[in-house]
């Protein structure tokens, strides 16, 4: 069991800055995110797009902002737990016990939920039976390409993942690439290469209609816009339709919700449960703006209440980073 002052659910920009606000108050935090890296929407949805409304930074991309936030919290040597989703929370006296999808257990007086619009997960195929075959014959990512050797693979999608895997797997398997329009979103040179090598059967203007099989998949039916159906013998389906945000287990934690957001008290961003806070896109209150800068403010206020709960015998003192020797020591600033 990992004991800490604060567990932060979500490593988006708002969760990252909360680490800072807690850190300068001397609080340790552990950060959990379902993604394989920090940055949330900024890194997953718009790494290359410039943001123009971060106070004091005229222009920076989603990726640059993430990098800067990570640099800013380096002194606190925070532990990140990636590729893990927070599944359950339960109360244990003054503490909360959290459990992740990898069965890691945390104990802490404070939880800050900075979960955005939910955890990022692969977008699943919608046809009947897709779920039944998931992780057996239907995959949303490739972990071991050798299992596809000599097999018949149907790949869906029009982005880089679909094109890259079509090219890569065509060296060891029989690949059909299926996409709903003629234009591909992925890199033109990968598509060019695929066409040049000519080993991949590319079917455009088709979508998956149904899956046929028993224990295993035997074939799939694909359908064009004008209703034409074609059957393709298939052992494995790979589907690359990007990531989607799913609120997931958060909705089952007994918090006061308004659709997909959590209601908070704007004095300290606490939810209806003592010691559970919500900041960033996932919180709601009258006038809430889903902006990064609002999330930073929300984290600052939540960190004060976290301090009070984690250090019940100490008095919270408001201090500036420019003048507090204590804060500067925590930041590793060498005093001149």
């Amino acid at each position: 069991m990992i004991k800490t002052d604060v567990v932060i659910v979500g490593a988006g920009p708002v969760g990252l800055f909360a680490v800072h606000q807690l850190g300068i108050k001397g609080l340790k935090s552990e950060v959990i995110d379902n993604l394989d890296k920090a940055g949330g929407q900024c890194i997953e949805l718009y790494p290359d797009k410039p943001i123009y409304d971060i106070a004091g930074i005229p222009e920076c991309t989603g990726e640059e902002l993430t990098k800067n936030l990570l640099d800013q919290i380096k002194p606190f040597k925070t532990n990140f737990h990636f590729n893990e989703r927070v599944q359950e929370i339960k109360n244990d006296g003054n503490n909360w016990i959290l459990k992740t999808s990898k069965n890691k257990i945390f104990s802490s007086p404070n939880i800050i939920i900075a979960g955005g619009v939910g955890s990022f997960e692969p977008r699943k195929l919608s046809v009947k039976d897709a779920e039944k075959y998931e992780d057996k014959n239907v995959f949303y990512s490739v972990t071991d390409k050798n299992k596809f050797k000599g097999k018949k693979i149907s790949i869906f999608g029009g982005g880089d993942s679909a094109l890259d895997w079509a090219l890569e797997l065509s060296k060891i398997a029989n690949v059909t690439l299926i996409h709903r329009r003629e234009e591909f979103r992925g890199a033109p040179h990968t598509l060019g290469e695929l066409k040049k090598i000519g080993k991949v059967d590319i079917k455009t203007k088709y979508q998956l209609a149904s899956i046929e099989g028993g224990e295993k998949i035997k074939s799939i039916n694909i359908k064009s816009d004008d209703g034409k159906e074609t059957q393709i013998e298939t052992d494995y389906i790979l589907s690359f339709f990007g990531l989607i945000m799913k609120l997931g287990p958060i909705s089952e934690w007994g918090l006061n919700m308004d659709k997909k957001t959590i209601k908070v008290n704007t004095e300290n961003f606490e939810t209806n449960k003592k010691g559970i806070f919500a900041i960033g896109d996932i919180c709601t209150y009258p006038g809430k703006l889903k902006l990064i800068l609002s999330g930073f403010h929300e984290g600052a206020l939540a960190s004060v209440e976290c301090f009070k709960r984690a250090r019940p015998n100490e008095k919270y003192r408001f201090e500036f980073t420019t003048s507090s020797k204590e804060i500067q020591a925590r930041l590793g600033v060498k005093n001149k």
């Binding site: 949805l45 718009y46 619009v117 939910g118 989607i244 945000m245």
Partner: peptide
């Protein structure tokens, strides 16, 4: 409208 109009969801 999970991405709030960002053409990202």
């Amino acid at each position: 409208a999970d991405c709030g109009g960002g053409m990202a969801c």
